[in-house]
Design a protein around this nucleic acid. Sequence first.
DNA 1: TCCTTAATGGAACTATGGTCCCGTTAGATG
DNA 2: CATCTAACGGGACCATAGTTCCATTAAGGA
Lengths: 203, 203
Amino acid sequence: MGEETRPGTLRPGGRTAQVRAAVLQAAGDALAEQGFAHLDLAEIARRAGVGKTTVYRRWGSVPGLVADLLMDMAEQSLPRARTGSLLGDLKANSRLVQRTLTDPRQGMLFKAVIAAAVCDARTAEALHRFYDARITEWAPCVQEAVDRGELPTGTDPREVIRAVSAPLYYRLLASGDPLDEAAADQAAEAATAAARSGAYITP
Amino acid sequence: MGEETRPGTLRPGGRTAQVRAAVLQAAGDALAEQGFAHLDLAEIARRAGVGKTTVYRRWGSVPGLVADLLMDMAEQSLPRARTGSLLGDLKANSRLVQRTLTDPRQGMLFKAVIAAAVCDARTAEALHRFYDARITEWAPCVQEAVDRGELPTGTDPREVIRAVSAPLYYRLLASGDPLDEAAADQAAEAATAAARSGAYITP
DNA sequence: TCCTTAATGGAACTATGGTCCCGTTAGATG
DNA sequence: CATCTAACGGGACCATAGTTCCATTAAGGA
């Protein structure tokens, strides 16, 4: 039961790939300009120079399309920093997140992705995988700090990385407080201090 | 220009208040059951035993209604803790947030409010005021800790409170990691440790 | 190269969310 | 308790998001 193939999986080359690229580009543009609320799949199809039917068939709904957009973004993630100190690495990370979230296009996109994940379980799953991959990329910074003796043994590297991003997302989505470099540095410093004192030791 | 009075403001007593209460109750129910995506104002009107026209006239759109729901919740916020120690107070706060976000009804509601805020600027403004009020309620816990000598002078109390909630919201909205008591305690401990080491001193 | 069929695209159609109109109900004021 | 009118309620109406149908195009393999 349920073994039907999704459109775009059996002939993924040539036109199919072009259509996907054009639609994702158009979706990103529309999202950045109009926001998640007024997103219209027909409008996106028009921008992409693609039939409206195609968009509905391939992606089905707005959250579905946003989820695919997220997959696309996940492939372009930047490699982690290697500054030699924990604080240096974490500041590089927090600055990167801060710049991403304050970039007009990327910021809108992340907000939309969060909203879409709230609306749709599949999108939420894609979002969780996205952050899982990011955290896995950066966690070695913390592990190396443990190995260097900067942090107590038993420190959970992934928790530390999460702790760096969390305040920035809280500002973006909840409190609305300014999301500047000072906030980014503070997040990195707080995570470092907490980690040093053993707050992220998990047995 | 723009001086027209909104419905429900000139005769706020009797039926008008009952309608508001019934609609907000129905909206909360529908939100908890079906989520933000499939929210239908006509459905809410039916549940509330109220005319569909009334809902559209008073609240206009889904984000508008969700914003009002948020106002209603803001009035029922609990008073801050007074345990005598910073860690005790912050743990009380983080546990409260954790219980709220994991409660089936309240959790869905908060997710919906965040999504609505992403979609609508007015709702975002209401959300920011909500968190501002919550932070103002709890900030004295930190100020008292500074006065007792538990924390360095110059520590920004509001930053510390934000730092407690942030990891919990990050889990709820972004990473999808478990949102249990251990996570709540860890958030409080990390914020305490970071504050002690001066990470939240703002000149 | 040719053949099969996956995938696309246009257009007509449907369904559902949202608006408008107008008569009815009931809060506020004296 | 009488009056005025803010606010409500029902139903007709409208716009547009989403579906279905079928002809056309081109990917992938013999």
